[in-house]
Simulated scan of single mutants.
Amino acid sequence: MTLDVMMESPLVGDVAGNLRVLVGRLLRALQAQDPEDGLSMSKVSVLSRLADDGPASASTLASAERVRPQSMSATLAALEAEGLVARRPHPTDRRQILIELTEQGWQTARSARRSREDWLTRVLESEYDQEELRLLSRAIELLERLAER
């Protein structure tokens, strides 16, 4: 079967639908691992991005997270109200405001990441053999490529 025929087959639609449902289920499972932190996945994602990449403007965060600027503004306002992020002037461009993690934001980002990764580690260790882990590792490469689109 050629790639052209395969791309036109129902398989592509099935994969797309199944992947959408599965990603949603996995996100909900990850969020459920630390319900006391009260953080939505969008908040966790922003905290993680700031922890990994450093301070950023709201527009840069919105673009990186692929959300509308209005949605990012609401997320940032909530994070700021919770004391997890703070705004400060850009050091060289006075027109911009940078968002950065507070100390509490750093602690929350680490805690959220740790609890979710610990859960994933336990499940992977107990439920998957080495061959399945290799397949998941390859799937992660493919999903990363998909996420960059």
Rank of each mutant, 00 (worst) to 15 (best):
Arg114Met: 03
His90Ala: 02
Ala81Val: 04
Thr121Lys: 06
Leu76Lys: 04
Ala78Lys: 08
Gln107Thr: 09
Asp118Ala: 09
Ser111Gly: 13
Ser73Asn: 14
Glu80Val: 01
Thr121Asp: 05
Gly83Arg: 00
Ile97Gln: 15
Thr92Ala: 12
Ser126Asn: 13
Ala78Phe: 08
Gln96Ala: 14
Arg114Gly: 07
Gln107Cys: 05
Thr75Ala: 04
Ala74Gln: 11
Thr92Trp: 11
Ile97Cys: 08
Arg88Leu: 10
Ile97Pro: 06
Ser126Met: 09
Glu82Cys: 02
Trp106Asn: 01
Asp118Ile: 08
Ala109Pro: 04
Glu127Tyr: 05
Leu120Cys: 12
Ala112Lys: 07
Arg95Ser: 12
Leu101Asp: 03
Thr92Arg: 13
Ala78Tyr: 00
Arg113Val: 00
Arg113Asn: 10
Thr75Arg: 08
Thr92Tyr: 15
Arg88Trp: 10
Pro91Phe: 08
Glu103Lys: 02
Thr108Asp: 07
Leu120Tyr: 05
Gly105Val: 00
Thr75His: 09
Arg95Val: 02
Thr121Cys: 01
Gln96Gly: 06
Ala86Asp: 05
Ser111Leu: 13
Met72Asp: 00
Gln70Gly: 11
Leu79Ile: 05
Glu127Asn: 11
Gln70Phe: 13
Leu120Phe: 11
Pro69Tyr: 09
Trp106Pro: 06
Arg122Glu: 14
Ile99Arg: 05
Leu84Met: 06
Glu80Gln: 14
Thr102Tyr: 08
Arg116Tyr: 02
Leu124Met: 13
Arg68Thr: 09
Ala112Leu: 00
Leu84Arg: 04
Arg114Ser: 10
Ala112Met: 02
Leu76Gln: 08
Pro69Phe: 00
Trp106Thr: 00
Ser111Cys: 02
Val85Leu: 03
Leu124Val: 13
Ala74Met: 10
Ala86Gly: 03
Pro89Ser: 15
Glu125Gln: 12
Gln96Asp: 11
Leu98Asp: 08
Arg116Ala: 01
Thr92Ile: 12
Ala78Leu: 05
Ala112Ser: 15
Leu101Met: 02
Leu84His: 00
Ala77His: 12
Leu79Trp: 04
Ile99His: 02
Thr102Asn: 01
Arg68Leu: 08
Glu125Ala: 14
Thr102Gln: 10
Pro69Arg: 14
Arg88Gln: 12
Arg113Phe: 08
Leu120Lys: 06
Glu100Val: 01
Arg94Lys: 15
Arg116Pro: 10
Glu103Gln: 10
Ser111Arg: 15
Arg88Pro: 05
Arg95His: 04
Ala112Glu: 05
Arg87Met: 03
Leu84Ile: 06
Arg113Glu: 01
Thr75Glu: 07
Ser73Pro: 04
Gln107Pro: 08
